[in-house]
């Protein structure tokens, strides 16, 4: 059981993840915590944001009064286009995704398995309206897939598990997980903790993880 307030805040999680994105990367940010990454681009780096509804070079939200209902992101929120942006249709947008042209996809998660399986689109409850959007295409096509999420659900259940109970978005697709407690890599041997939030003990991370956890924090760069 883990206190949700322990470790990094959402902003700090986003800031930590942003440190691992190379200058000049083409990045697709999912809805929710992933969107915060745009606020934490390290000094001297530029990321080009792709939004799958058809814009490369997505900028921040517009000033009040400048909103354009025909300039939105994948979450249907108003955005802006940076100098050097490009618009394109959906088949081209997903050619960028599926064709391996994007460097990184950052997504939220309901569950991640020790093999890198991701569940983030449906609880599978009968009667619930399913909606998948572009998540399955993103995880299948983008070179690297990072997940950013609270380590546990609001009820205190681990989100990092041996096997996902929820319907999958993709099999063996997640490379790395950034949580409020730690940075965890998905390796051939399972979950490996490569960095912990300040003041968080390895045993705390391991106890909040629903699968075996390898301690590689010393090896973190």
């Amino acid at each position: 059981m883990t206190d949700g307030a322990q470790g990094w805040t959402r902003e700090q999680m986003a800031q930590r993840l942003a440190q691992d994105i190379a200058d000049g990367s083409y990045v697709n940010l999912g809805i929710g915590i992933p969107e915060l990454i745009a606020n934490h681009v390290p000094e001297g780096r530029t990321f080009i944001y792709h939004t799958e509804n058809g814009l490369l070079g997505m900028g921040p939200a517009p000033d009040e009064g400048d909103e354009d209902p025909e300039l939105v992101n994948a979450g249907k929120k108003y955005v802006t286009a940076i100098d050097g942006a490009a618009f394109f249709h959906h088949a081209d947008s997903f050619a960028m995704i599926r064709g391996g042209h994007l460097d990184l996809s950052v997504l939220g998660a309901m569950q991640v398995s020790q093999h890198g399986d991701l569940a983030n689109w449906s609880t599978g409850k009968p009667g619930a309206i399913p909606g998948v959007g572009g998540a399955m295409d993103l995880v299948a096509g983008v070179k690297q897939v990072f997940v950013i999420t609270q380590h546990c659900t609001k009820a205190g259940e681990p989100k990092l598990v041996e096997q996902c109970a929820y319907p999958l978005t993709g099999k063996a697709v997640v490379d790395r997980i950034y949580t409020n407690l730690a940075v965890i890599e998905v390796t051939a041997d399972g979950f490996a903790c490569i960095e912990r939030a300040p003041g968080v003990a390895f045993d705390t991370v391991a106890a909040a993880t629903g699968a075996p956890l390898i301690d590689r924090c010393g090896a973190a760069s």
Partner: peptide, 23 residues
């Protein structure tokens, strides 16, 4: 899936009856 939907429409319009996708 959104990208599969887009590609199915593109393919249909381009005279491609079917295709393989990893999504």
């Amino acid at each position: 899936p959104q990208g599969t939907l887009a590609e199915r429409i593109r393919a249909g319009g381009a005279g491609i009856p079917a295709f393989y996708t990893p999504a």
